[in-house]
């Protein structure tokens, strides 16, 4: 082979890190199934106004608590005669949003705090981590209820209280991963080549700790969704008549002896969604945890 040819031939197939993760994730059938279910839920929630379903707020005194399979109401109706299918789809919008948003917010705040605490160490670490420890004194559910109760019901307040609940665990994970990375040779090499603390944190630390923190945060989404539904169920979350799975579970509670199948539907949705989120995050964890 001529030199030019050798130069042109690829050393080996170019593959980025994320391409590798996607490839390994594709081999995991369970994770893919969960991903498909979640994608269907998310898409139907996003495009709910475009779907051929009824108005989720349209009540009817005559068509109350119809069973599953009633003509015109494939999943029956609730205690006010509103179409369950429409309410479940619209409910997904709210439930998914207040399930994912707090984790996303907590992910940003928590990783920033954790990386700063882990990288700088010393007094800064003590200050941040001991303040975070205070939050661990309360069970997360109780803390969320307390904050929501103090702020009052409403979507925004649920977002705030749930974000506060998830900042401490994410900070703790971020701090422990960062402490491990901090003593790595390449961080010292970066310091030896004259990087300042901010550059090193932004470039070298963040690049190496984002994966583990992300996987951990993704495992929190299902917990967050259940908590959000729980808040609504207890009346300190979303206010009626908004369709939200936790709230629907609460209002249908009284109908459990008359029409148990319909009453169980919101619970089933919560169950399936959180299960899928958990299994997907498990799949993600094993797809990303590849040792070189």
């Amino acid at each position: 082979m001529a030199v030019a040819e050798i130069e042109r031939a690829p050393a080996f197939k170019r593959r980025g890190y994320w391409a590798g993760v996607a490839r390994r994730l594709m081999r995991d059938r369970v994770a893919i199934l969960c991903l498909a279910i979640l994608a269907a839920l998310v898409l139907s929630a996003i495009f709910a106004p475009l779907l051929p379903i009824q108005d989720p707020y349209q009540a009817s005194m005559v068509a109350r608590l119809k069973p599953i399979g009633t003509a015109g109401h494939p999943l029956g109706t609730d205690e006010q005669g509103r179409d369950m299918l429409a309410r479940l789809i619209y409910g997904g919008r709210l439930t998914l949003m207040i399930g994912l948003m707090p984790v996303a917010i907590a992910f940003f705040i928590g990783s920033t705090l954790g990386i700063v605490a882990g990288y700088i160490g010393g007094r800064v670490n003590t200050l941040i981590m001991r303040s975070i420890d205070v939050f661990f004194a309360f069970p997360s559910v109780l803390l969320a209820i307390a904050i929501s109760g103090a702020l009052g019901a409403g979507i925004l307040n649920s977002l705030v209280s749930l974000s506060v609940v998830f900042v401490p665990p994410i900070t703790r994970v971020a701090e422990s991963v960062t402490s491990a990375v901090r003593s790595a040779d390449y961080i010292e090499a970066a310091r030896a080549s004259g990087g300042n603390a901010l550059t090193i944190m932004r470039v070298h630390v963040l690049g190496n700790v984002l994966g583990p923190i992300f996987v951990y945060a993704s495992s929190l989404t299902s917990v967050c969704m259940i908590l959000a539904a729980g808040l609504s169920f207890l009346g300190v979350g979303v206010k009626p008549p908004e369709p939200e799975w936790g709230l629907m579970l609460n209002t249908l509670r009284t109908a459990i002896y008359m029409n148990p199948m319909v009453a169980a539907l919101p619970g089933l949705m919560i169950f399936v969604t959180s299960l899928c989120l958990n299994l997907l995050s498990d799949g993600l964890r094993s797809a990303m945890n590849v040792k070189e």
């Binding site: 890190y17 030896a192 080549s193 004259g194 190496n208």
Partner: peptide, 25 residues
């Protein structure tokens, strides 16, 4: 001044290149 000195005037080669190069870049 210290940052300019490190890596500018003086630079260092480490013992274990597998660890001293940032794995994600």
């Amino acid at each position: 001044k210290l940052q300019e000195y490190r890596g500018g005037e003086v630079s260092m080669v480490f013992q274990e290149p597998a660890l001293a190069l940032d794995p994600v870049y």
